[in-house]
Design a protein around this nucleic acid. Structure first.
Lengths: 235, 235
DNA sequence: ATATACGTATTTGTATACCAAACCGAACCG
DNA sequence: CGGTTCGGTTTGGTATACAAATACGTATAT
């Protein structure tokens, strides 16, 4: 967790704060890892990255340490950093943690969300339904993210939000590629409808439960795809 | 999350792995912060710490970045690292997250724990009861930690364990000092008895709920002490 | 041909020197 | 008393050096 988010200072101050170089590098590498530009298992060569990013070794290596602390890369002594490659078990465990955090977030959101925020989420939900109807997967993903983020923000817990974001980022590159089939997609949309209902009723326990199963369903779908991919390689 | 815990490799390999200097420094500083040797708000002077620890600036500064990522220190641009000082709100938020992680851990533990492990925890529980009867607070804390750790391990989720440990470490220095009164102590012990029952019955939902309220009660007790301390300063 | 051994080239981890910019504190001035 | 100026200190970043570990290509042995 970096200082900007951690300190309770006014957001105006945050914008003034000049971020340090290693943080900029962390952000950049995070993006490349999450977007899949850097494939899991890739070795991060210091000299090459120094050239590419136009920085010296010191801040780059500091960034490596931070990314390792965030669980995005793995540091092998004397062999530098490699983009972390999650095992099937790692994926399952990480999704499990995310499901717990998301459930907590849902419970808290129900206790703290305003009517206006509920309406906002409902609007996003309908937009998402439209994307679903149009079979617009990228749009669906974008709105899906917005909805989960809105719930997260409604929970009014920055530590939770930060923790969730950090751990979830380890899974992002996988989530993108899960081309779910029609049935799973329909089921996910139904779960989303149930979420909005639970939110509207401020039923924290129910929303938490829905979110948990929602995330675990996503996990199963990712693992299934993973298994198919693994078989394709072995074959 | 550091590499050693992240890799799914055999534990025998971990011991071989020579840890890097910055990791040793992280561990050292973590201990000093958690134990309260380094008081929140303390500025960590690079040169002084380099001398004290006998290392150069490079690995020390890497350690600072890692500690910042873990939320133990705060990096102020051009002013270096200071031991993070949690606001009342920060404390509440962090406990909230911990409560969620602990609840998840309880749920998973009920699904996966072995009879032998339950018995082990029961034994620890009785030892703890003995400490409570003897009014042995340090012993109580030690066993309390062991029990929660055992539940955490029974959840069979290293990512969860690692996440929990990291976030919980931000609160450790506070937990030590909460001298709870007789009533709260008794209540905590009752909650622990209920935990063992729920664990024995493999009732995940109930254990989760107990753990959550248990942690939140601890939070309230810490915040109360915090308020008293704040008043003492103001007065 | 495959496997092993060896020597060289890279790469990494740490230390050090250096510099500009930011910060701190104290004397100074209005 | 509040603000300013100025020098010392600290930090962020770069560059360099070097030992140790690793990676790799070649030669050798089986």
């Amino acid at each position: 967790m970096d200082q900007a988010e951690e300190s309770g200072d006014a957001s105006s101050l945050v914008s003034i704060q000049p971020q340090m170089l290693h943080e900029a590098i962390v952000t950049q590498l995070q993006r490349m890892i999450v977007e899949g530009t850097l494939v899991p298992g890739t070795r991060l060569n210091e000299r090459l990255l120094c050239d590419k990013l136009g920085v010296s070794r010191t801040p780059l290596r500091e960034a490596f340490r931070v990314l390792a602390a965030q669980g995005l890369v793995s540091l092998l002594p004397n062999r530098g950093a490699i983009v972390l490659q999650l095992t099937t078990n790692d994926i399952a465990e990480t999704f499990e943690v995310v499901s717990g955090l998301e459930a907590l977030s849902g419970e808290l959101a129900c206790a703290r969300i305003t009517d206006a925020e509920v309406n906002e989420i409902r609007a996003l939900h309908f937009e998402m339904l439209a994307c679903h109807a149009k079979r617009d997967l990228p749009g669906y993903y974008r709105l899906n993210f917005k909805i989960h983020d809105a719930i997260n923000r409604a929970a009014r817990n920055e530590v939770l939000r930060q923790t969730y974001t950090t751990i979830n980022s380890r899974l992002q590159s996988l989530r993108f590629r899960s081309n779910f089939d029609r049935d799973k997609w329909d089921a996910a949309v139904r779960e989303h409808s149930a979420m909005v209902e639970a939110l509207d009723a401020r039923d924290g326990a129910r929303l938490g439960a829905i979110l948990k199963t929602h995330v675990l369903a996503k996990c199963a779908s990712v693992l299934a795809l993973q298994a198919v991919a693994a078989e394709a390689i072995t074959r």
